[in-house]
Every structure is written in structure tokens, then in C-alpha cells.
Simulated assay, not measured.
Amino acid sequence: MVRRVALITGGARRVGAALSRSFAERGYDIVMHHGNSAAAAEALAAELTAAFAVHVEIVQEDLADSSAPARVVQAALNRFDRLDVVVSSASVMETRDFAAVTPDDWARAEAINLRAPFFLMQAAARAMTTGGVIVQIADHLAGETGHPRLIPHQVTKSALHQLVRAVAEHLAPHIRVNAVAPGLVLAPDDMSAAATARFLHDVPLARSGSPDDVVLAVHYLVDALYVTGTVLQVDGGRHLRR
């Protein structure tokens, strides 16, 4: 039996790892990209291979390199000779005061959060046949009033929402393109309990989510054959209070 192949960028840690695990559980062979998480990638690949008898190709690339997205897609084709689903989960979110943002900070956010997803979609579109699916992991913050310490992240993720809509129209009807915009599903390592409580004050469901909430949304978009160009909010309703 020929298995379907899913490529997950940032697929070795946090939400990306949950996505890699979920596709393996569904019988996909996995192309697991990481930037600098080799140990986590090797451990997760061994786990998925043992648990689900799938094949896992690990690809290390810094997506700030403009040619990296094409190399990631080519690695998938070299190993499996097909590509069915791409989930672009890799991103950078660096907290900086307005006055402390440097040109390098801005360039890295733009390169990883916006340029890399575009060229990953471009390369994937060449590789996919009719029925291919691309899902971008965006951010619920993208539609909010400006966050003063996340300006490069927020601006690039806002642009990613528009990019999804534009590319979805261009690639229809053969390839569907959507996005999931998570809220607080996995707190940053440096987020204090007080900051978490302040954030949840504006969430109508009054709790944080989990990576599984993102996984469910991604698989809905993979399976929903009449959905393209959609940014699906998975934020506990926080977007209602903008």
C-alpha cells in the first residue's frame, strides 16, 4: 500500500511534534523538518516508527535561508517521491520592546514567518498532484490591535493570513490552502502565571487550549474538501473581544 506523505516544518517540538505524531497515527509517512532540534527530532522519529510502523525522514534546515524551503520539499520527494500534505508550523516569536527591535530581528521574523511559508507553498505546489493540501499555522494575534512587544511577529503573521487567501485562490481548484490561528494552546517557556491569567481574562471559554486543539483543526482542514482560503480561529473565542 502506498502511504500518503505529510511534511511538517518545525515538526520536532511543541505543537509541531503533536502534528507529526497525529499524522503518523493516521498512517502517513512523515517528513519532519527542524531548525536546531536534532535530538528531539531523532527521539520523536524513533517513537513514531516504533509505534505506527511509518517511515520518517528528518530534514534540518534554517528557514531563514531563502533556498531552504525548496530543499525541504526536495528532500520529501527524494525519500518518498510524493507529497500530499504540508503543514507549515515553524515560526519565530521573539519578545522585544519597540525601541529594542533591530533590523536583524525584523529580517528574521519576516524570513521565517512569511517568506519561508510562501516559498514552501511554491515548491510544494510544483510537487503536489490534484488533491494536495497546505495548512499554515498562523496566530490569533494577527488580527488584534498591536501588541507592543511582538511587533515583528504580529505584522508578519498578519501578512501570512493575507498570503493564505491569495495563494488559495491561485492554486484552486487543484490544491487547497488554509490556516489555523491558535490562541494560547501551549504557553511560551518564559510566560509567567500572572501573564497567563491576564491573557485568559479575555478568553470567553476562560481557559487555555492544548496542542490537540490545533491538531483537530488541522485535520479538519485536511479532510474538508470544500474549504479553501480559510483562517480557522482556535483561540477559545478571544477574537470576539477585539
Score class of each variant (00 low, 15 high):
Glu61Asp: 06
Ala40Phe: 04
Ala138His: 04
Arg82Met: 09
Met128Ala: 09
Gly35Trp: 01
Met93Asn: 14
Val222Asp: 03
Asn113Tyr: 07
Arg108Glu: 09
Ser66Trp: 03
Ala125Arg: 07
Leu141Ser: 12
Arg26Ile: 01
Val86Tyr: 11
Pro211Gly: 04
Ala206Met: 07
His34Gln: 12
Val215Asp: 00
Tyr220Leu: 10
Ala90Lys: 09
Leu163Pro: 03
Ser37Cys: 06
Met121Pro: 03
Val92Lys: 11
Pro188Arg: 10
His239Arg: 13
Glu47His: 12
Gly236Ile: 03
His147Tyr: 08
Arg4Asp: 14
His140Cys: 09
Thr156Pro: 02
Val54Trp: 07
Pro211Leu: 00
Thr230Trp: 00
Met121Cys: 15
Val56Tyr: 07
Ala124Val: 08
Leu141Ile: 09
Ser66Asn: 03
Val101Asp: 09
Val31Ala: 11
Phe119Glu: 02
Pro182Lys: 08
Leu186Asp: 08
Ser66Asp: 09
Thr95Trp: 15
Ala168Ile: 03
Gln233Met: 15
Arg79Ile: 06
Ala75Gly: 06
Glu169Ile: 05
Val214Cys: 03
Arg126Thr: 06
Val155Thr: 15
Leu186Lys: 05
Arg26Glu: 08
Phe98Ser: 11
Asn36Gly: 10
Leu7Gln: 13
Ala109Lys: 02
Arg115Lys: 10
Ala100Glu: 15
Ala64Cys: 00
Leu63Tyr: 02
Leu221Ile: 05
Val135Ser: 04
Val180Phe: 02
Glu110Ser: 13
Ser67Pro: 00
Val185Ile: 13
Ala193Leu: 13
Val180Trp: 04
Thr156Tyr: 06
Glu169Gln: 14
Asn113Gly: 10
Asp235Tyr: 01
Val54Arg: 11
Ala111Met: 05
Pro173Gln: 03
Ala38Thr: 09
Met1Phe: 14
Val180Gln: 04
Arg26Leu: 05
Phe80Gly: 15
Val15Ala: 01
Thr230Met: 05
Arg242Asn: 13
Val218Pro: 00
Ala64Ser: 15
Ile112Glu: 07
Leu205Glu: 07
Tyr220Phe: 14
Thr102Tyr: 13
Gly131Ser: 08
Ala17Met: 03
Ala107Ser: 12
Gln74Ile: 01
Arg79Val: 04
Ala46His: 12
Phe118Cys: 06
Trp106Ile: 10
Glu42Gln: 14
Phe199Pro: 02
Glu57Asp: 10
Ala195Cys: 05
Val185Met: 01
His147Ala: 15
His161Trp: 13
Arg149Thr: 14
Ala116Val: 00
Met93Gly: 11
Phe23Met: 04
Glu57Asn: 12
Asp223Leu: 05
Pro69Tyr: 08
Met1Glu: 13
Met1His: 15
Arg207Ala: 13
Val215Leu: 02
Asp62Trp: 01
Ala51Leu: 13
Thr196Asn: 01
Val73His: 04
Ala12Leu: 08
Leu141Tyr: 07
